[in-house]
Write a protein that binds this DNA or RNA. Structure first.
Length: 857
RNA sequence: GCCCGAGUGGCGGAAUUGGUAGACGCAGCGGACUUAAAAUCCGUUGGCCGCAAGGCCGUGGGGGUUCAAGUCCCCCCUUGGGCACCA
């Protein structure tokens, strides 16, 4: 019996306290608390079939330590968890096995929940959410309707990545180096009808909003680069012999005099008119070849530029010169105006092209005396203008705005801003996603809808959203919010339709409906048309939403997960606001984090939310590599499962070691030996707690112990605040080493250590807290306060340096004056030996720390 | 190619503002306890020279600023990440 007590039986301890927390609702977040709130959010996982691997919990442990620490500091803490459960793998599995994705998803979620619970997080499980629940995706659809109503959704034919193996369309960001991100299959271009969100309308707001965010710099930079704002001018060039103008965008209007040719993209609408008859064959061949190239060929690989002269000439508005117009695929139709003025002297790309086709290269930014670097072309920096008529001699940068206003005066140009950001292709031709709540009707029925009072009319955008199908133009009507959720229908076959459409397109009883223009209600068309006036024939939108949709707003739903009438109760949103801490992988730097900012900002503009930004403080945990230093992967066989680690060492050791591995943001390898180290530390703590004969009543009487104790309180507190958990753990190890070393210590001292340890190793801490006579739960105990006055020793050590090298040290009273320290240093035998034959030229004293004698000779 | 970040013992890392480099842990070595092992504890561990006292060198490489540099500046190397014809 006594023997058993001394063993650190983590398995039963962890089971005991996990059950306790669940039974007592220890970590329930109160909606109507007087306390200040603290909201710690993890990027929620996609529950894959493989289960959790050791990398997943890293961020969760970090946020959990913060959550438990903040609770101890008196905050009302919310630390929730949920499932981003729509997505491709469950659908792929369904295609292979016929198992409904909801079945797979449920099993995977159950397994993930079990694994996460086994690590002992301070999660309020009453707030668990799942993006595939219709009570959740009702509101995802609701947000879409709002976007639709505000004209931020439209439908367009877009060239998209089609993956024959996955039989699915992929977004740009899901294609890496010409292969699908999932499964690494080859992909090709196809034109398909897509629902698109006008995120570009939010480019400026998304850019500006970044300034106030406490985010890693690199992530902000990535978003900035992704949005890609540039300022310049749009300039119109007359076309010789044509009554049309060619408009270009340039960031360098100051180099207008150096434009020696023009380029239009192969898809440019004016190209047909520009081509003279002798060039028609050449140009047509070129354009066709360009159309066959994928974006990859046109950008990444094709460093070699190519193009064809159209035979036409433009007239340079600043000097009346005629310059040739070329077509070349290094100019993209999707950016700016799809046409450029080429200035080979001051643009690398134009320079390369001009050299290849022997087009004139004319310098307009000149080198001045001693400016070597400007004499080599192409040169794209600042400088003084030359060969530029009236502008000669001016600073090019200053000249930009002058030229723009001169162009404006002449009516041939204007200042302009462009963004690299493209609209967001929001549709997926898949089954396992949120159905997009739109139906398609004829023009006539659309006009009727506009004239029919009711919720459908109220939800319509100002301009119609249309799409051409089989030569007919169809008009989009919303399935109004009163009809949400629009649930996924059952389907027999999960294979996408061969056309690239989603499997939903094959279920005609769902697809073809009678739609009521007044109420938005619908009835399958294989039933009789209902009585009444406003029933029209309609076809449902078959696309579903991308996986990003559900994660765009989940941080809001945790605040009010069961609300059937509102996305979130405004009172709850007002109290909880946005997360105080958000942690997740850096791989989401631009996609999830930009899309979520877009939706959140939009909801703010709509008056639904009180904060414009969703994630004020963001942190990226670093990858945990396999023990061999490689990325953990099944194929390499270096994956470590938390289940195995918990079996062998317990959840507390797992938690502690994930944090002890190194800085939270660093990429670092797993180590089996390393976890034994922290496990040993926990055993040591366990042993010390049970050695009650060492525990004394009253205050700590050993000065050294008292000092280390308060140093530890201070350092652990600071380290948690700074997310430097590895340092916090080191310091607790120093304290336990001290307690182990001395013969006895105050019981309060070890109780304090247990409190500091509680956020890191909560199960063991609860157990030991109880055994030391504390009242459960330790999670409710206030955080220990360091007494800083104890950290100042009466005696201090001051080191002596000669020429910056350590040569001795001395003990001094803490309020010693400079002169006595310096004379003591000079009197030190070793210091003297290094001063011999030298002259002291400078004496430096850093109070309480060191003396440095600079000597020469 | 461009833009960021990182390089510290055998290993993971510490040194937050320029002020004793290598805390803490792992691994190693020596020892205690034990019939033995496990567990635990104690000591030791950057390199070179030296019997020792001690000295010299040392934070990717080279230069610089400073009384003092892992920390600041310049150049270079290696490595991780992001972007990549956006005019």
């Amino acid at each position: 019996m006594a023997e058993n007590q001394k063993i650190y039986d983590f398995t039963s301890i962890e089971k005991k306290w996990q059950e306790y927390w669940e039974r007592e609702n220890t970590f329930r977040a109160e909606d109507d608390s007087e306390k200040a709130k603290y909201y710690a959010l993890d990027m929620f996982p996609y529950p894959s079939g493989a289960g959790l691997h050791i990398g997943h919990p890293e961020g969760y442990v970090a946020s959990d330590i913060l959550a438990r620490y903040k609770k101890a500091c008196g905050f009302n803490v919310l630390h929730p968890m949920g499932w981003d459960a729509f997505g491709l793998p469950a659908e792929q599995y369904a295609i292979k096995t016929g198992t409904h994705p909801s079945v797979t998803t449920r099993a995977n979620v159950d397994n993930f929940r079990r694994q996460i619970k086994s690590i002992g997080f301070a999660i309020d499980w009453d707030r668990e959410i799942n993006t595939t629940d219709s009570i959740y995706y009702k509101w995802t659809q609701w947000i879409f309707l709002k976007l639709f109503q505000r004209g931020l959704a439209y439908v367009d034919e877009k060239p998209v990545w089609w993956c024959p193996n996955l039989r699915a369309v992929l977004a740009n960001e899901e294609v890496v180096d010409g292969k699908s991100e999932v499964g690494n299959h080859p992909v090709e271009r196809r034109n398909l009808r897509q629902v698109v969100l006008r995120i570009t309308a939010y480019a400026e707001k998304l850019l500006e909003g970044l300034d106030d965010l406490d985010w890693p710099d690199s992530t902000k930079r990535q978003q900035k680069a992704w949005i890609g704002k540039s300022e310049g001018a749009q300039v119109q060039f007359e076309i010789a012999g044509l009554d049309e103008k060619l408009e270009v965008y340039t960031t360098r209007p100051d180099t207008l005099f150096g434009a020696t040719y023009m380029v239009v993209a192969p898809e440019h609408p004016l190209l047909k008119k520009l081509v003279i008859s002798e060039k028609e064959n050449d140009v047509q061949t070129y354009v066709e070849a360009a159309a066959k190239k994928s974006d990859l060929d046109r950008t990444d690989l094709a460093k070699d530029k190519s193009g064809v002269f159209t035979g036409s000439y433009c007239i340079n508005p600043v000097n009346g010169e005629q310059i040739p117009v070329w077509v070349a695929d290094y100019v993209l139709i999707s950016y700016g105006t799809g046409a450029i003025m080429a200035v080979p002297a001051h643009d690398e790309r134009d320079h390369e092209f001009a050299e290849k086709y022997q087009i004139e290269i004319r310098r307009v930014i000149g080198p001045q005396d001693g400016e070597e670097e400007k004499s080599k072309l192409p040169y794209s920096g600042p400088g003084v203008m030359v060969n530029s008529g009236e502008y000669d001699g001016m600073e090019a940068i200053a000249c930009k705005s002058k030229i723009i206003s001169d162009l404006e005066e002449k009516g041939v140009g204007k200042g302009a801003i462009n963004y690299k950001l493209r609209d967001w292709i929001f549709s997926r031709q898949r089954y396992w996603g949120e159905p997009i709540p739109l139906v398609w009707v004829s023009k006539e029925d659309y006009e009727n809808a506009k004239n029919t009072k009711g919720i459908v009319k109220e939800s319509l955008p100002h301009d119609p959203v249309t799409s051409d199908k089989d030569g007919e133009t169809l008009y989009a009507l919303p399935v109004p919010s009163s009809e949400l959720p629009l649930k996924l229908p059952e389907v027999e076959n999960y294979q996408p339709a061969g056309t690239g459409e989603s499997p939903l397109a094959t279920i005609s009883e769902w697809l073809d409906i009678w739609f009521n223009l007044e109420t938005g209600k619908s009835v399958s068309r294989n039933q009789v048309k209902p009585d009444g006036d406003n029933w029209v024939s309609a076809t449902r939108e078959t696309n579903t939403m991308p996986q990003w949709a559900g994660s765009c707003w989940y941080h809001l739903r945790y605040l009010d997960p069961q609300n059937e009438d509102q996305l979130v109760d405004p009172a709850k949103e007002a109290y909880w606001g946005s997360p105080d801490f958000y942690i997740g992988g850096a791989e989401h730097a631009v996609l999830h984090l930009l899309y979520a900012r877009f939706w959140h900002r939009f909801l703010y503009d709509e008056g639904v939310l009180k904060n414009p930004e969703p994630y004020r403080k963001l942190f990226h945990q670093g990858l945990i590599l396999g023990e061999d230093g490689n990325k953990m992967s099944k194929s390499v066989g270096n994956v470590v499962s938390p289940d195995v680690v918990i079996d062998a060492y317990g959840a507390d050791s797992l938690r502690l070691f994930e944090m002890f591995l190194g800085p939270l943001e660093a990429v670092k390898p797993w180590s089996e030996k390393g976890i034994e180290g922290v496990h040993r530390f926990l055993k040591k703590v366990h042993r010390e707690c049970l050695q009650t004969e060492k525990h004394l009543q009253g205050e700590e009487s050993n000065k050294e112990t008292l000092k280390v104790l308060h140093e530890t309180i201070l350092k652990v507190t600071e380290a948690i605040e700074d997310l430097r958990f590895n340092v916090a753990i080191s310091q607790m190890m120093i304290l336990i080493n001290q307690l182990q070393k001395v013969e006895s210590y105050s019981k309060e001292s070890i109780k304090t250590l247990i409190q500091l340890l509680a956020p890191f190793a909560p199960h063991l801490s609860e157990e030991l807290w109880e055994s030391l006579g504390g009242k459960p739960s330790i999670a409710n105990e206030p955080w220990p306060q360091a007494r800083k006055e104890l950290l100042v020793a009466d005696e201090i050590t001051i080191v002596f340096q000669v020429n910056g090298k350590l040569r001795g040290e001395g003990q001094f009273p803490k309020d010693v004056d400079k002169d006595s320290v310096i004379s003591a240093a000079k009197a030190d035998a070793k210091v003297q030996s290094f001063l011999e034959g030298k002259e002291i030229v400078k004496e430096i004293y850093v109070p309480g720390k060191l003396v440095n004698l600079a000597a020469k000779g």
